[in-house]
Design a protein around this nucleic acid. Structure first.
Length: 710
RNA sequence: GGCGUGGUAGCUCAGCUGGUUAGAGCGCAGGAUUCAUAAUCCUGAGGUCGGGAGUUCAAGUCUCCCCCACGCUACCA
C-alpha cells in the first residue's frame, strides 16, 4: 500500500438535539483527534471535518414539546457542542452544520447527480395522508381492519392477528395513530436507491478490499466487528431504500424535480454529505481546493464512528459515493464499540452519563484534569469491545500514570537540572559510559539511550497508524518509565559528587526524554504537552515536529540544545484522593435521581370511556415462555367463572415460576389478538416506571377472582 | 428468536495465519533508593484461557453444541 498524499478524516456528526457525553467522545471524537494530531505532527496533509447533524423528526418533536422552532433547538445544541469540542481539545479543521445553506446546496447537488445518472428508482405510490397532522404517515402509524381476517387493529404493514403482510392501502377503514382521525389517500413519490444493484462491487470491496478488481485497502486492517456486521448485512441481502421522506424539517429535494414538493432528503443521505459540505466550507475559508480531498485517488478517507453507525458508513454512504462516480471510498472505518459507566450502560434518558460540557465547566481551572479525562478515556477506549469508565479507574490513571510516572519524572529532571546547573541544559559527551536504563549494572552510551527513545516513538507511531490508541498510549507512558529507570540506574544525585561530565550526559539524555514526552503527549493530552513545552522554554509542538525531533536527535544536534535555559518546574498532575472519587460517584447518582421524566398526561377521558373497560381480578395459574420471543410469556389466568390464555410482554422482568399464583388485574373485554401464534384473550395491567421496568397491579390479599375493578 | 461481536490472572486488557514453561498494566507481597508529590526502580505470587464434546502429533488459537454480555433485528394491547 503506497503512502497517501493527503488524509481526509471525519468524525460522526453529532445529532443536535442534546449535549455530548463521554461515550460520544470515546467513540468517535477522541480517536479521530489523536489520529489527526499525530498526522499533523508528522507534517502530513490532513483535514479533519465534522459538524452538527441538524435534521430529522426527532428535532421537530423536541421543538414541539418545548414550544420552540426546530431552528432554535439546533442553534442551541450546535453552539453547545461546538464549544464543548473546543474546550476538550478536539481540534477539527472545521465544525460545520447541516442547516447551512452550503450544505443544503451540496446535498441537493449530490442528489441531482444521482438522479441524472438514473441511480434512483422513482416509485409513486398512494400513501395515507393525515390532514389533521398534515403529514404522510409511516406504515406503522396506520391502523385499520384487516381484509383477510377482519381483525380491527391491523397495522399498515402487517396484521398481527393472522400474520399476513399488508400494505396500508389494503386496510379497510384506515385511521391515523397520531391523531386518531380518518385519512386521505394521496399520491406520493419517493426516490429509492436500489442497494442490491451495487452488491457486485460492494462485496469484494468489503470482503477482499478490492474495488473494481484493483486493490483498494487491506481488509485485515479493518476491525473484526466492523467486517462482521458488514458481512451480516450483505448476507442478509440488500434492499432498495427510500432516499426521500415526507418531512417538514430537512433538506428539500431539488425543486425542479417532478414531485419534489414537500419532500426532504432522507437524513442518512443528508448527514454524511455533511462531511463534504464541511470540507467545502473549510476549503473556501482557507483558499484550498476541496475536490482533491474527496476525488483524488491519493487521498485516504477515514471515518471515525461508533458501532451504531457501521452500516451507514460502510454500505450506504460508499454506495452513494460510488454511484456518484467521482468520489473516493473510505480506506477504513475504525468504529469503536460502546463505553459503559460504572458498570451500567450510558443512558441519556436516565441521565446516567458524564456530560462533557459539565465536566469541562466544573474543572475549567484544572487543565490537568481535562487531560486526565482524555488520558483515561484513551486508556479505556472501547476499541474492540465495550469498555468501562469508572471514577476509580480515572483516579488510578491520574495518580499512577500521569502523576506518578509522567509528572514526577519531569519534576525530578527539572529539580536536578536547576540544582546542578541553574536550569541550563548541560552538554553531552557521546564517548562517555553511562548506566543503562534498560538493565541494572549494565553500561550504555548517549547514542544507545537516545536510540531507546526513538524505539518507543517508532512503536507509538505504528500503533497510531493502526488505530490502536490504547497501545500507543501505553507506549507513551513507557517513555516516562524509561526516564525514571535512567535516573534510578545512574543516580545523578550521587554521580554529581564524583563525575560531573558523566552527570551532564545523563541529564542531557533525560532532558531529551522530556522533550520526547512533550511531543508524544501532543496527540493524546495536548494541554499537558503545551505545559511541558512551556517548562522547557520551547514553543508548542507544531507541524512536522516529530520528524524533526527524530532527525535532530540522530544527528546529535537535539532540538533542546546545550546551554538552553529551562523554566522552573511545577507539578503537572496532582493526587486525586479517595474522597474526591467518592464525591464524583455521588454526584453521578444524585443527578440520576433528579432526572426522572414522567410521561405526559393523556387527553381527558369521560366516565363512559372508562366504563367501556371491563377490569377483573384474576390469578395467574400457569406461565411459560413463548418460543422465539424474548419478552413474551404465555399465561393462563383464573377469572373465577372461566380461565383465559393471555400473552404478556413481561418476560424480561419476571420468570414464569415466580409469578404463578400472583393476583393480577385483567382487562377482560379487550378484543382477542394473536401474538406469535398464540391467541391472547385480554391484557394484564402493569405499572411501568421511568426505566421501563414493569410491576404487577394486584388486588389485596383476600379478594377472590372474577370481580370488577372500578 | 435470527445475525454479528466479545467472554483470557482480583481489576482493565494483549495474544497474527494452531507449535517450546499463556503475556502487559493496575492492585497485592517482598526488596532497593532518596533527586522527586510515600512518587520511582527491581523481584515475586496469582490463570484447568465461559462450559462440554470433537479434529490434530499439537488448540486460548480450528469444528459442533450450550451458557453469559453487548449491538442490529423481530416480538412487547
Amino acid at each position: 500500500m503506497t503512502k497517501p498524499k493527503r488524509y481526509l478524516v471525519t468524525s460522526a456528526l453529532p445529532y443536535a438535539n442534546g449535549p455530548l457525553h463521554i461515550g460520544h467522545l470515546a467513540g468517535a471524537y477522541l480517536p479521530a483527534d489523536i489520529f489527526v494530531r499525530f498526522l499533523r505532527m508528522k507534517g502530513e496533509d490532513v483535514v479533519f471535518v465534522c459538524g452538527s447533524d441538524e435534521h430529522g423528526a426527532a428535532i421537530t418533536l423536541r421543538a414541539k414539546s418545548e414550544g420552540i422552532e426546530p431552528q432554535d433547538v439546533v442553534d442551541k445544541y450546535d453552539a453547545l457542542i461546538k464549544e464543548t469540542f473546543e474546550k476538550v481539545g478536539v481540534a477539527f479543521d472545521i465544525y460545520h452544520r447541516t442547516s447551512s445553506e452550503l450544505h443544503h446546496e451540496t446535498a441537493q447537488d449530490f442528489f441531482r447527480v444521482l438522479n441524472d445518472k438514473g441511480e434512483f428508482e422513482k416509485k409513486t405510490s398512494e400513501q395515507y395522508y393525515d390532514p389533521e397532522a398534515k403529514q404522510f404517515l409511516a406504515d406503522r402509524y396506520i391502523t385499520g381492519t384487516c381484509p383477510k381476517c377482519g381483525h380491527e387493529e391491523a397495522y399498515g404493514d402487517q396484521c398481527e392477528n393472522c400474520g399476513s403482510t399488508l400494505s396500508p392501502t389494503d386496510l379497510i377503514n384506515p385511521k391515523s395513530k397520531l391523531s386518531g382521525g380518518t385519512l386521505e389517500l394521496k399520491q406520493t413519490t419517493h426516490w429509492y436507491l436500489p442497494m442490491d444493484k451495487y452488491e457486485e462491487w460492494l462485496r469484494p470491496w468489503i470482503v477482499d478490499g478490492k474495488l473494481d478488481g484493483e486493490e483498494h485497502h487491506d481488509p485485515k486492517e479493518w476491525k473484526q466487528h466492523v467486517l462482521g456486521q458488514c458481512k451480516s448485512w450483505l448476507d442478509g441481502g440488500l434492499q432498495a431504500r427510500a432516499m426521500t421522506r415526507d418531512l417538514s424539517w430537512g433538506v428539500d429535494v431539488p425543486q425542479e424535480l417532478e414531485g419534489s414538493e414537500g419532500k426532504k432528503l432522507y437524513v442518512w443521505l443528508d448527514a454524511p454529505i455533511g462531511y463534504i459540505s464541511a470540507t467545502k466550507q473549510w476549503a473556501k475559508d482557507k483558499g484550498k481546493d476541496w475536490e482533491t480531498y474527496w476525488k483524488d485517488e491519493e487521498t485516504e478517507l477515514v471515518h471515525f464512528i461508533g458501532k451504531d453507525n457501521i452500516v451507514f458508513h460502510c454500505i450506504i454512504f460508499p454506495i452513494m459515493l460510488k454511484a456518484h462516480g467521482e468520489y473516493v471510498l473510505p480506506k477504513n472505518v475504525p468504529a469503536n464499540q460502546f463505553l459503559n459507566l460504572e458498570s451500567k450502560k450510558i443512558s441519556t434518558s436516565r441521565n446516567w452519563a458524564i456530560w462533557v460540557h459539565e465536566f469541562v465547566e466544573e474543572f475549567k481551572d484544572r487543565p490537568d484534569l481535562l487531560d486526565t479525562l482524555r488520558y483515561y478515556m484513551i486508556a479505556t477506549m472501547p476499541e474492540n469491545k465495550d469498555s468501562e469508565f469508572t471514577w476509580k479507574g480515572f483516579q488510578e490513571a491520574n495518580n499512577s500514570d500521569l502523576k506518578g510516572k509522567l509528572a514526577n519524572f519531569v519534576h525530578r529532571v527539572f529539580v536536578l537540572s536547576h540544582k546542578f546547573w541553574n536550569g541550563e541544559v548541560p552538554s553531552f559527551n557521546t564517548e562517555l559510559e553511562i548506566a543503562c536504563s534498560a538493565e541494572v549494572d549494565k553500561t550504555s552510551t548517549y547514542a544507545k539511550e537516545t536510540d531507546e527513545i526513538l524505539f518507543h516513538l517508532e512503536r507509538l507511531s505504528n500503533f497510531i497508524k493502526k488505530y490502536e490508541f490504547r497501545s500507543a498510549l501505553k507506549e507513551f507512558i513507557r517513555i516516562a518509565e524509561l526516564g525514571n529507570r535512567s535516573l534510578q540506574n545512574n543516580a545523578p544525585w550521587a554521580l554529581i559528587k564524583t563525575d560531573e561530565e558523566a552527570t551532564k550526559t545523563v541529564m542531557n539524555v533525560n532532558l531529551q526524554i522530556v522533550v520526547a514526552l512533550s511531543i508524544a503527549a501532543k496527540p493524546f493530552i495536548p494541554g499537558t504537552s503545551d505545559r511541558m513545552r512551556s517548562l522547557l522554554n520551547l514553543p508548542e509542538v507544531q507541524v512536522g515536529d516529530l520528524d524533526k525531533f527524530i532527525k535532530d536527535l540522530k544527528s546529535y544536534s537535539p532540538t533542546l540544545s546545550s546551554g538552553h535555559t529551562l523554566n522552573k518546574s511545577y507539578h503537572l498532575f496532582t493526587d486525586l484522593k479517595d474522597d474526591w472519587v467518592a464525591s464524583q460517584i455521588q454526584k453521578l447518582e444524585d443527578s440520576q435521581e433528579t432526572a426522572i421524566e414522567y410521561p405526559e398526561l393523556k387527553e381527558e377521558a369521560t366516565f363512559d370511556d372508562f366504563q367501556k373497560m371491563d377490569l377483573r381480578t384474576a390469578t395467574i395459574l400457569t406461565a411459560e415462555k413463548v418460543k422465539k420471543a424474548k419478552k413474551l410469556l404465555k399465561l393462563t389466568v383464573d377469572l373465577g367463572f372461566e380461565q383465559r390464555t393471555v400473552v404478556s410482554g413481561i418476560a424480561e422482568y419476571y420468570s414464569p415460576e415466580d409469578i404463578i399464583g400472583k393476583k393480577v388485574v385483567l382487562l377482560a373485554n379487550l378484543a382477542p389478538r394473536k401474538i406469535r401464534g398464540v391467541e391472547s384473550q385480554g391484557m394484564i395491567l402493569m405499572a411501568e416506571n421511568e426505566k421501563g421496568e414493569l410491576g404487577f397491579v394486584s388486588p389485596t390479599v383476600g379478594m377472590t377472582n372474577g370481580f370488577t375493578v372500578r
